[in-house]
Each structure stands twice: as structure tokens, then as C-alpha cells.
Design a protein around this nucleic acid. Structure first.
Lengths: 237, 237
DNA sequence: CCCTCATAAATGTCAGACAATTGATCCCAC
DNA sequence: GTGGGATCAATTGTCTGACATTTATGAGGG
């Protein structure tokens, strides 16, 4: 477990140092979910710093969803049980930032997204439940509305693929993919779909739904390739 | 004079609210990389809060690598140019936390990791360069050393797969996968490889190297499936 | 039994001070 | 003119003490 924070002991803020110490305790399991940290006053005394500095350290941890705080008599800072949603939001924001700040082009982002999703479809074919089929059918119906704005079409597309990934029944997978898809959503939102583009996407979605229902993973893979090519044409055309 | 248009919107800390505002400006591009934020005093005046509160907000952003700070006359808080490495480290730590805190079992984590990687191999077959083949060959040689500790074997395995993913030539993909693989490394490190497990992994690696050199994506996919099954067997005993 | 109120403990916020850092500027010797 | 210090000003980092707010708990009275 290479801790990237333990590099040449750079001159760090006290608040960063203390945050690192507590983070270490959490990552190594010395503090587990729902454990309560000492109060700010106790922490400040224990680490020999002021309460303000302790607070800055705690805010750092809170920003990483490592802890949550509660006010009041039984309040304090508690080790957070990081939910998949929290992690997803965090990752999506990182992904967005990475893509916009590094000027990743839409083709690269699309390629990545479809490549990742392609890896899930066999699992999805194996583990899908009725609820996933229903969700996808619902989104396809929405996508057929010609009055749907590009942005809403995109959102529905995201929901469709989210259901597909969820069908794989692997929360880690769902989390990674959801973050990836959400992260490039800003880029996808810049696309303008002609009606014939939408029609092409929708028929592919319908074919995918059929393939998923019939549990034919290999066909899903082929359809994903088509969809990727279609999306790229829309993006570049 | 903070014209507060915050509706119910959950009762948030002031520091969280201010962090959100600044984060929004960064994510929407109103603040771009290397832009300098106003000084803490100016921010506190602008948002109508104390400097301590502003500082807590800035620490939150710093914890997410959104900004960096520098002391001194020309110092201040600057929008960070998030590098792929930073993002990767951040995501890996999130993934580790998610997996350990949620007690994700090793089978689920493995399944996710191999599913994601499987999606990249066709691209890798198409875009691989000599440098990637060399890196993988080097790691295979390391893995043949019988004196290698389990942990080092694991690290070499990570490097091997990292090279494979890099061969796809898509930085977004490399970033996502690297984070995923690193994130579950703590779990993988708990595995103990018998010699025959190592031998099986190594021959699969050699076959993958061949397939990559010959650019046969379909064969790579099959080999990935074998490798996943082999890893699961090792994990489950 | 229930309602109200006081209490204590904890986080949230504030104001002001001082320390440490660092680039810029000025001044002077050479 | 130029190099090298000394000084300065701006900014973040830290500390102190205070007060506000939230919240569980328990005491007291109806």
C-alpha cells in the first residue's frame, strides 16, 4: 500500500500534518466507521496545537468525506461510512475537473467511457434483473419524445446506461462507471443531436435491451461498438 | 453583503457553503488553472464571514487538490492544475476507503477490476507501442524470480497491467484503470500465492504479451477471463 | 405521565493578534 | 552601473479567547 503522502516529508502545514495522522488511523483501521474522534479541544491538546488548527484539519477530512460532524451534547466528529454515492460524486467532480482542465477532447473521453462500459456488458447479461430492463425501457420511451431537449436526451441516455451497468450487480463497477459517465457529461452535453442521430441511438438502445433480456453478452458488445461509433460520428460530424 | 439565495438547501456550514461557491466557479470554468483567488481577507469581506471561516473553506478545497496555497508577498490561493497523477492518487485513496469501509469482498473487487480492464484490451491491441511490450516483458521477468515476496509480486503484477492499459493510448482510460487497480491493491496484497498460482499467472501474462504483440484483441479478452478466474481461485483458496 | 426549562457539552463563528515566509524595493558600497 | 544586503509589505499560518448555536439529558412542576 504505497502511501503517496509519505514522500520526502515536505514542509507541511500543521493542519495538513494532523489531517494526515488521523487519515492514517482511518485507512489502517485503527479508527473504524462510526467511531467518534476526540473533541476538538481534546485533539488540540493531544497534538499540541490550537483548536483552530485542529478544525482546519477536520475540515480537510470532511472534504474527503472521511468524517462527518454533529453538533450538540452527543456531537463530535465521526468516521464516515463512505457511501457509494459520496464516492461517486467525488470521483465525478474529479473527472470533470481533469477533463476540462486538461482539455481532453471528446473523442478520447467517449472512447474511454465506451471501453469501460463494454467490459461490463457480459456481467450485465448474466446478472440482469427485471428492474433493470424496466428502467431501460422507460428511458427509451422518454428518448422517443421529439420535444426533448438535447440536455434531457443526454440525461436520459446517462440513466439508460446507468441501468445497464447496475445490471451487472457489482457495486464497485457501478460506482466506477457512474463516476466516469457523470464526469464526461459536461462534454456530452455539448453535443447537438440531429433527429436521425437520435433515431440511430434509440434503435441501438432497443437492440441492447433485447440482447440484455436474452442474456446475449456477445451481441451487447457488438452493439456497444456500434453505439460508440455512432456517438463519435455525432461528436465529430 | 452576501446576497444569499440559498433556499432550504440543507443546513450547511458557512465554510462548506463558501467552499461550494468557489468550487462551482472552478468547475464551471469561471476560475481556470493558475488563477489566483482573492486573499483570505478579501474573501472574508466579500462573503461577509470571518477569516477563520474562509480558511476552513480553503482547506476543504485544498484537500480536494482544487487549490494550492503559497505564503509570502506574491502568495495566495491558486487554482490547481490537476494532474492525472494527483487525480489518480485521490481516486485510489477513495477506492481503497470505499472497499475497506464497506467490506467489499475480494471477489467483487476482482470482478470489477477485470471487467474494466477487459474493455481496454481491444484498444490496447490496436494502439500498443514497442515501449509497452518492453515494459510488460520486463515485469514478466521479475515475476519469475522465486524469491519475490508476495507483495512485490503483486506490485509487479500491477505494473504489468498498468502497461497493458497504457497501451490503449487513452489517458482517461489509463487514469481510471490505474486508480481502480491501485484502489484494490490492499485487498490483492492479502493474497498469498502458491508457486503454482504464480506459474499460472505468469504463463497467462506471457500469452497476453504475445497476443498484444500480434494485436489479437479477441484472444486478449479470452486470456483476461482466464486470468480473472485464476485470480479468483487464488483468492478463494 | 408529560411538558417545560435549565444545564452541559460539543461544534460553529467571530475578532484580533502575532509569527513566518517571500517577492519587491531601496540604498549603499564598490 | 552593479551587486548585495537590509528593509518593507503582503499574505498565509497559528494562537487565544470569546460568544453563538445545537442537542441530549435530567430536574422540576403541573
Amino acid at each position: 500500500m504505497s502511501d503517496n503522502l509519505s514522500r520526502p516529508e515536505k514542509q507541511k502545514d500543521l493542519s495538513a500534518t494532523i489531517a494526515d495522522r488521523i487519515r492514517h488511523d482511518i485507512l489502517t483501521g485503527q479508527l473504524v466507521a462510526d467511531d467518534r474522534l476526540p473533541s476538538e479541544s481534546e485533539l488540540s491538546e493531544a497534538h499540541g496545537v490550537s483548536r483552530a488548527t485542529v478544525r482546519e484539519a477536520l475540515k480537510r477530512l470532511a472534504a474527503q468525506s472521511l468524517i462527518r460532524t454533529k453538533r450538540g451534547a452527543t456531537g463530535g466528529a465521526f468516521v464516515n461510512r463512505l457511501t457509494f454515492e459520496d464516492a461517486c460524486a467525488q470521483m465525478a467532480s474529479t473527472a470533470t475537473l481533469l477533463i476540462t482542465l486538461n482539455e481532453v477532447d471528446i473523442a478520447t473521453a467517449c472512447e474511454a467511457r465506451f471501453a469501460l462500459e463494454r467490459g461490463c456488458v457480459r456481467l450485465a447479461a448474466k446478472n440482469r434483473q427485471q428492474v433493470h430492463l424496466d428502467a431501460m425501457r422507460f428511458e427509451i420511451a422518454r428518448q422517443k419524445d421529439p420535444d426533448l431537449s438535447d440536455e434531457d436526451f443526454c440525461a436520459s441516455d446517462v440513466a439508460f446506461h446507468r441501468a445497464l451497468v447496475d445490471a451487472a450487480g457489482n457495486p464497485v463497477l457501478s460506482w466506477q462507471l457512474a463516476a466516469a459517465v457523470e464526469g464526461i457529461e459536461p462534454l456530452m452535453n455539448m453535443l447537438t443531436y440531429q433527429q436521425r442521430d437520435r433515431d440511430a441511438v434509440i434503435s441501438l438502445h432497443e437492440a441492447m435491451l433485447e440482447a440484455l433480456e436474452a442474456r446475449v453478452g456477445s451481441r451487447l458488445e457488438i452493439l456497444m461498438d456500434y453505439l460508440r461509433d455512432q456517438t463519435l460520428r455525432t461528436a465529430l460530424g
